[in-house]
Design a protein around this nucleic acid. Structure first.
Lengths: 194, 194
DNA sequence: GACTACATGTAATCGGTTACATGATTGG
DNA sequence: CCAATCATGTAACCGATTACATGTAGTC
């Protein structure tokens, strides 16, 4: 299946990581798995190395080679000014929410933008969280309609038991996300008053 | 980004839909969006039509053409015996959980297998739910460790506020899923006693 | 008159996986 | 001694998007 809210979004994830600190392709992968791996799909080495090369060509990152004895040279990548402004432009762009109502894909993009929120501002992050909240609330309402219909026809077809299970998961997850938005808002206010 | 628990999983989603009723490519897309679209990424027409053609060549589906006046013929696809056994083999295969600890990708595959659970059995579905539950519980425990660490260092770096927000989302969502597993188990028991 | 829904598809391109290739160091 | 970790990469292939192509029927 399609994995991620497409369009080079992995490049933005990479730029976000490099904005925190310069890394080799190898370390980049490990770092991404550890920090955003629970919501962002892993990149393979065979994707990461060519991508970094391409990004270097596009001047989004710069590379410094460190000699290694008896092992391949470590190639340490840093974000460039151009790379940072490229990243910032993406970070403030509205979520790609109209193209699909897929919960998980929307969450992936939202969470990456939240993760990198300090690059933009409290205001921008807050706006994203609120926008997503209303989208998620709409999804929740629709799922509850499905639930009602399915419960009214449980006896007619065993399939409906299984459909209902997936719908219940959707309802529970959307409600968890709606509750989370309040927590996130609270943290943002705390940060603002620091 | 990568979207789905790969390896032709869209073929299984298609077979699952066609097992319920024969459909044209056009209707298949609509149906998938409506029923599994909230967790399963949408397929484009430019992917669906060639895929159906390939699946027909592989004898997983069969096609019947219905004449249309003043518009393209409707090509109605049905699942074949071979297609059904192909689907069943996949449905009982363990979740691809070791390759990554990505919450959303694991959920996609689990939900599709639950959605199509009536094709296998209550027992198989119950097993999948339980397996995922323990995986999700482990993820939840790890995220709680992250939370603790981040809260201890909130003052040191504003980034940590943003990281914490994503971790809190992970905790809330995993807990919602864990609670859901009990509801799902209850529904499965209800179905078993019918 | 403009837009949406119906209904099919192809070509070029981009995104991502799998398998392959190499070889040293560290920990059990 | 074996496995895992460090560290880079390429080639072939499969999966998916974007843009293009065509045309009718119904609704606002």
């Amino acid at each position: 299946m399609p994995k991620v809210a497409k369009e080079n979004s992995n490049q933005y994830a990479i730029l976000g990581m490099l904005n925190h600190e310069p890394l080799t392709g190898y370390d980049l992968k490990k770092r991404m798995e550890l920090t955003i791996g629970f919501f962002w799909p892993d990149l393979s080495y065979s994707k990461i190395y060519p991508t970094l090369k391409k990004m270097e060509k596009d001047k989004l990152v710069s590379m410094k080679e460190i000699e290694g004895e008896n092992r391949p040279n470590r190639k340490v990548y840093s974000i460039t000014k151009k790379g940072l402004s490229h990243l910032k432009r993406w970070l403030v762009r509205p979520l790609n929410t109209k193209s699909s109502n897929n919960l998980f894909i929307i969450m992936q993009e939202l969470l990456l933008k939240v993760y990198l929120g300090n690059i933009t501002s409290v205001e921008v992050t807050s706006m994203f969280i609120n926008d997503s909240k209303s989208g998620i609330e709409q999804g929740n309402a629709m799922l509850k309609l499905f639930e009602k219909n399915l419960r009214n026809h449980l006896d007619k077809d065993d399939d409906h038991y299984y459909y209902l299970m997936t719908v219940l998961m959707g309802i529970d997850v959307t409600e968890a996300i709606i509750k989370w938005t309040s927590k996130a808002e609270k943290l943002l206010k705390e940060l603002q008053q620091k």
